[in-house]
């Protein structure tokens, strides 16, 4: 008997355009695909309709993701995905706006858009796929490349300090900040669901593997060894509170790092419009 019963693992195929672009453009073992499947399962679990989602991205490896989704997608200019997303959300507040962005896209080219989207607290879910390097253009050092790590533009080790995207977002005013890795796929699914349910700017940083450039230049091996490296290096947020800063050096703190309630930008704007028009 063929499997007439629909299984939960099959929902992945409902939300993608299978005849369009598959197999995907990413390298074998790239963590972006793991994020894509976790995002599909989170969307399906939350029950959002395909018409109610707008997915935006900039330029980069991770930003190729929306073209595989069977939702309204907008592939924008480099770094400006959050700027476009602000416009989409402002024009159509009923849409669930999801932004897929990479570390270079969000923090280097679109750094200003990133902090100002956090500051406004507009209801956007930003998913930042952090692979520590510019993978698409040949392995240049990005703002999140760790100190002393190697890339094609830092052949003797990176002398700069790196950004912590979660700390930056929380300081700039984002109201939901979480971090996870591609090894922790079930946790990622839950965190993405929480971030989409949150009203306000939510950032989920997913530490991903670029074994083609970062792993090769830093001798971290193939996809499997990098994913197992994330498993060893990650610390749950509850455990990390009991650890000293020296012990947390080089560790990846995973979980929901920051959540506060603040007024959302579209609500606040509507309140002002109603007050000026004398509706209340």
């Amino acid at each position: 008997m063929a499997t007439a019963v629909k299984q939960r693992s099959d929902v992945i195929l409902d939300y993608i355009r299978p005849r369009k672009k598959f197999p995907s453009v990413w390298c074998a073992g790239c963590g972006n695909g793991i994020v894509m499947s976790a995002l599909i399962r989170a969307i399906e679990k939350a029950g959002y309709s395909k018409d109610g989602i707008a997915m935006l991205s900039g330029i980069g490896c991770s930003s190729r993701m929306p073209i595989y989704f069977d939702v309204s997608a907008l592939h924008t200019t480099h770094g400006r995905a959050l700027g476009f997303a602000t416009g989409v959300k402002f024009a159509r507040p009923e849409l669930k706006v999801i932004v897929i962005t990479g570390d270079g896209d969000a923090l280097a080219i679109g750094g200003n858009h990133f902090i100002h989207a956090c500051r406004r607290n507009i209801d956007i879910t930003a998913i930042l796929l952090n692979n520590y390097i510019y993978g698409m253009t040949g392995g240049q050092g990005s703002p999140t490349t760790p100190s002393e790590a190697f890339s094609t533009t830092t052949p003797y080790g990176n002398v700069e300090k790196h950004f912590e995207p979660c700390d930056l977002a929380a300081a700039a005013g984002a109201t939901f900040v979480g971090r996870t890795t591609v090894y922790h796929a079930p946790q990622m699914e839950k965190l993405l669901g929480d971030a989409m349910a949150h009203r306000g700017f939510s950032l989920v940083e997913v530490v991903s593997n670029c074994h083609t450039y970062f792993g090769r230049l830093n001798r971290q091996g193939d996809a499997v060894s990098m994913i197992n490296h994330f498993k060893e290096q990650s610390v749950p947020v509850a455990k990390s509170r009991k650890m000293s800063p020296e012990e947390l050096e080089g560790k990846i703190v995973t979980g929901k790092l920051h959540e506060v309630d603040k007024t959302e930008f579209c609500d606040e704007y509507q309140r002002v419009v109603d007050a000026v028009q004398g509706r209340n």
Partner: peptide, 18 residues
């Protein structure tokens, strides 16, 4: 245990039972 299809980056694995 779902580990294989949850971690498949190419969405190539689906379970027949779960």
């Amino acid at each position: 245990c779902t580990i294989c299809w949850v971690h498949c980056p190419d969405l190539a694995i689906t379970s027949n039972y779960k």
